[in-house]
């Protein structure tokens, strides 16, 4: 199994608060990895380290390595915009731009442009309208939203239902051709039907992407993930195959948490 992300002795501090305490973890390619743990355990902090979202928080210090394809994304010479293109993120609350459905998906590719091949190799240029149309349709199809919105692409993204908005955000992430997608409690604001659609989508997406999901819903973690990591008070307590974690966890803390006796 190929390792997509490797963290090595990863520490995060918010001023004096030691939020992550030396987390070393391998995340496998084309798998769904769930991160579980009680509130404040560091699971969101952890996935925000994977695409340097913590850089945006004042007083936050990150120590240790986050290796993606062998490259430490915290190195000074790394282009953080490119890191966030390669490692997309979907958040708890759907946050479509106040633009049309089409523009929501086209926004990223338009911003990043396309890298030329052939004679102009390596140069960036703008996408043609036809290329953008193809990316938008492909992304919406991949996010299982195309059939529901194809006749109203000019309508506002905010006019969609909560579940559709979340899938629009996923399509927006897919449009910039990432390798890894991080989901921070993507279903916590959705009803069971919308949740089921997102869950099906996540399982389908792992064929092409590496998926990491933070969730408070342990049944969700059990349903959709291949591997599960349990965090507690900033420590990685246990990581293993999801089946093993939910059937016979090795650590007492994990047992207490997943059986609802702690947290």
């Amino acid at each position: 199994m190929t390792i997509a992300i490797r963290t090595d002795d990863l520490h995060v501090y918010f001023d004096k608060n030691h939020a992550l305490k030396g987390v070393s973890m391998d995340i496998e390619m084309n798998q769904v990895t769930a991160v579980i743990g009680p509130s404040g355990c560091g699971k969101s902090t952890f996935i925000r380290c994977i695409n340097r979202m913590n850089d945006l928080i004042p007083g936050c210090t990150v120590k240790g390595k986050v290796l993606v394809d062998g490259m430490d994304i915290n190195d000074d010479d790394v282009d953080v915009v490119d890191v966030r293109r390669r490692i997309g993120m979907v958040f708890q609350k759907p946050n479509p731009f106040p633009k049309s459905i089409y523009e929501n998906v086209a926004y990223g590719p338009r911003l990043h442009g396309v890298v030329e091949t052939g004679n102009g190799k390596g140069r960036r240029r703008k996408h043609t309208k036809r290329e953008l149309d193809e990316i938008v349709e492909h992304s919406l199809r991949r996010a299982a939203l195309w059939d529901e919105v194809k006749d109203r692409m000019d309508k506002s993204g905010t006019s969609l239902s909560g579940g559709q908005q979340q899938r629009l955000c996923i399509a927006r992430t897919l449009a910039v051709d990432p390798e890894i997608i991080l989901f921070d409690e993507p279903c916590s604001a959705l009803d069971p039907i919308a949740t089921a659609k997102i869950e099906d989508l996540l399982v389908d997406l792992k064929k092409d992407y590496t998926v990491v999901i933070v969730t408070h819903n342990m049944q969700q973690a059990a349903r959709i993930s291949d591997r599960t990591a349990f965090f507690y008070l900033g420590d990685l307590i246990e990581m293993g195959d999801t089946k093993q974690i939910f059937e016979r966890p090795q650590k007492e803390f994990t047992e207490q948490y997943i059986t609802g006796r702690m947290g």
Partner: peptide
């Protein structure tokens, strides 16, 4: 109640 781990066993 969706029991897991030792409860499920």
């Amino acid at each position: 109640h969706s029991p897991v781990a030792s409860d499920l066993r």
